[in-house]
Amino acid sequence: MSDSPQLAVAQSPLASLIDMGGPVMYVLIALAVLGLLTFFYLIITGTLFSPRSGGRVRRDVAQWEQAERTTIPDRPTGFFARCNPMHGLARRAMSGVTRGEPADMLRENLAQGAQKALQPFEAPLKIIEVIAALAPLLGLLGTVMGMMEAFSAMATTEGRASASQLSGGIYEALTTTAAGLVIAIPFAAIAAWCEFRLRRLNSQMNERLLGILNSAPAKTMANAARGTARTNDSARQDTYQPARVAHAAG
């Protein structure tokens, strides 16, 4: 009996948690690790490849407007600037306006490019959302399994089970429920924050790209309208009118 306290002290916190929660704790711990890795991946990817309308993009657009929309600025040379897809989208918009491309075709191309720029963030966000929804259900599963163990002990003793015999199953049930909620609550908050950031990036892309499209002079818009093989009535609708370029993710 003198060895049992020493074994309890030597037992790791992870092993103790698994002993308290039962086999469902393995799945909950795996989900927590997967969620953390996904969150760190999302942070790193967002830092490097998120479409940001930063100062360099604004300076390029201002330089293009000062040159009367005839000269497109040079490509950025910095590492972070090259990773930012907003530079490519802005250059595509400026090039289309300069060449007088049809407005609808140019908007469609920019919408596809904007959607492609947000695609790397959609899969990690979906994983975090699934973990936030799945963790409470797994905790509930552990609760059911723990209560089944408690009632099984009561049935074995024909209703004369002591409190110590019932406490193990009830403790397992409460532990898995608490673990599921502890995992689900922060990941639900992380998913909401990531979705807000994606929608904000999408809004900033729309604002910047539409600012470039709507800055086209009247002559450029007339050429773009004539470039579409449509009737006169439909051609008048092909000028650069304000419209959303990309759709919000989520």
Rank of each mutant, 00 (worst) to 15 (best):
M148S: 06
M145I: 11
A123P: 14
S12N: 11
M20V: 06
A30D: 08
A135K: 09
L17W: 13
F80V: 08
T77Y: 00
S152G: 13
P242G: 10
Q66T: 15
R107Y: 04
P136G: 05
I44S: 15
W64P: 07
K219S: 11
F187Y: 01
V24Y: 12
R199A: 09
F39A: 12
S16G: 13
V182A: 03
W193H: 15
L106K: 05
M86I: 05
A216E: 03
E207T: 13
W193C: 12
G227P: 02
S95F: 01
L7D: 14
T156H: 08
Q11N: 15
M105H: 14
G100Q: 06
W64D: 01
L31R: 08
R226Y: 04
T231R: 10
A114S: 09
A179R: 00
N223G: 09
A243M: 05
Q112H: 13
L17G: 11
L48R: 15
L17C: 12
S203E: 07
T98D: 02
G35Y: 10
S167I: 04
A178S: 03
R236T: 10
L140K: 05
R226G: 03
R52Q: 13
T45Y: 15
S53N: 14
D233W: 09
G168I: 02
N214L: 10
M86W: 05
E149P: 14
R58Y: 08
I44A: 15
G159I: 02
G113C: 03
R82K: 06
P13D: 13
A93T: 01
T228V: 13
I72V: 08
L48M: 13
M145S: 15
T220R: 04
V97L: 05
A173V: 02
P85L: 03
A216Y: 02
G55N: 07
S12Q: 14
R82H: 02
M25S: 03
E172S: 13
L28F: 07
G139Q: 09
T71Y: 01
Y41N: 15
G78R: 01
A229D: 11
R208N: 11
T175E: 04
S4T: 14
F39Y: 14
A229H: 11
A103L: 03
G159F: 04
M154G: 10
R59D: 04
A132R: 06
A132E: 01
I183F: 02
P120M: 11
C83D: 06
V182I: 06
M25N: 09
P23Q: 04
A178E: 00
L134M: 09
D19Q: 12
A179S: 00
D238M: 07
T177E: 00
I170N: 06
L166A: 02
G113E: 05
